[in-house]
């Protein structure tokens, strides 16, 4: 009978650990959002990506719509190319949309802000694999300070 008790306790231990894992995966990491694979890909070229990282969020008006899938360097022009995975649900951004690398708060981490553009007959909707032309690079503090000093010098 005592082996039975041991088996039950070991079973309970494993159930508890699985519950802990589910909590970490679903409640803490929120694996539901982009883990489901229902996404499409857009590209954007920047001058400078600053502190943007793989898996940084992509937000529209503060709502997360996707994540950065990879960051590579274009081997012809040597500019960074960001591959973005956007949730299938948000699939009608026009080609006039723009992306900017923004910072959440003063010290927070960097994310991609996607700004939907206007729509008329001549404007097409961005599809899987398209690039967004209108991009704004990260603000690099050193450059900003340099400019400020330069302007004051005038």
């Amino acid at each position: 009978m005592t082996t039975r008790k041991i088996e039950i306790l070991v079973g309970a231990f494993i159930v508890l650990a699985v519950a802990a894992f589910l909590m970490l995966a679903l409640k803490v990491a929120n694996a539901g959002i982009s883990g489901s694979g229902q996404s499409y890909v857009l590209y954007a070229k920047f001058e400078n990506i600053g502190g943007l990282k793989v898996r940084s969020p992509i937000k529209v008006g503060g709502v997360v719509v996707g994540r950065v899938a990879s960051i590579d360097l274009d081997t012809v022009y040597y500019t960074p190319v960001v591959k973005m995975e956007i949730n299938e649900q948000y699939s009608n951004f026009p080609e006039t949309s723009s992306v900017a690398i923004l910072t959440s708060g003063l010290l927070g981490e960097q994310y991609l802000g996607l700004q939907p553009g206007f729509i008329d007959e001549t404007v097409q909707i961005l599809a899987d694999g398209d690039s967004i032309q209108d991009t704004r690079s990260a603000i690099v503090l050193e450059e900003l300070i340099g400019q400020f000093l330069f302007n004051r010098g005038n």
Binding site: L24, A25, K27, V28, A29, N30, A31, G35, R55, V64
Partner: peptide
């Protein structure tokens, strides 16, 4: 508490 956690914790990278 939970939402900033979710925004910053990644399943693969962290968990």
């Amino acid at each position: 508490y939970w939402s900033t956690m979710q925004a910053n914790v990644d399943l693969y990278q962290d968990v």
